[in-house]
């Protein structure tokens, strides 16, 4: 029975020492330790949050960079295409221009040739008329050198008239 009957002396010392321990630890150990733990947890939480934010920012920045890169690539492609188009256009224009010029020159040349040809034809016609007159004159002179011949001619002509 002694085992389960509390001893007053031990009870007294236990109460004294336990309350002392409780008081001392409460004041000098548990409060600072729990406060520090709380503070550290908060700072860790904040650090984690900050890291999260930084990571988000980084992702955003990365996405932005990518967007900028894509845009730049598109811009480059666009400029390239424009340049290409411009080149084509310039070339086409030049080709067109030269063709037109060519046509114009050709047209001009044709007109010139026509004019020259007409002139030449006119000249030839005038010359040939002149020449024919002269030849006819010469022929007439030869034909009508004597009276006989003149007579024959008249006869011939009158014959022709009679026939008609």
């Amino acid at each position: 029975m002694q085992l389960v009957s509390p001893d007053i002396g031990l009870l007294f010392w236990m109460l004294v020492s336990f309350l002392t321990v409780l008081f001392l630890l409460r004041k000098f150990a548990w409060k600072p330790i729990l406060n520090m733990l709380h503070r550290r947890e908060e700072s860790i939480e904040q650090a984690l949050k900050a890291a999260d934010r930084a990571r988000e920012d980084m992702y955003k920045m990365k996405a932005d960079n990518e967007k900028i890169l894509v845009e730049a690539r598109q811009e480059r492609d666009r400029i390239f295409r424009e340049a290409q188009d411009l080149k084509e256009k310039i070339l086409a224009d030049a080709r067109e221009q030269s063709k037109k010029e060519q046509m114009r020159i050709m047209e001009e040349t044709k007109t010139l040739i026509q004019t020259e040809k007409n002139n030449a034809v006119k000249e030839i016609r005038a010359l040939s008329a002149d020449l024919s007159v002269r030849i006819a004159e010469k022929l007439l002179r030869r034909e009508l050198r004597n009276d006989q011949q003149q007579k024959t001619l008249v006869e011939e002509m009158s014959n022709e008239l009679n026939l008609n």
Binding site: W13, S17, L24, L25, A29, W30, P32, I33, M36
Partner: peptide, 20 residues
């Protein structure tokens, strides 16, 4: 009891000191 009280006090007061 006193021995363990001394152990407890020395352990936790030193731990608390480190925390501070």
């Amino acid at each position: 009891l006193f021995v363990s009280v001394i152990i407890i006090l020395s352990v936790f007061l030193s731990v608390a000191k480190r925390y501070k």
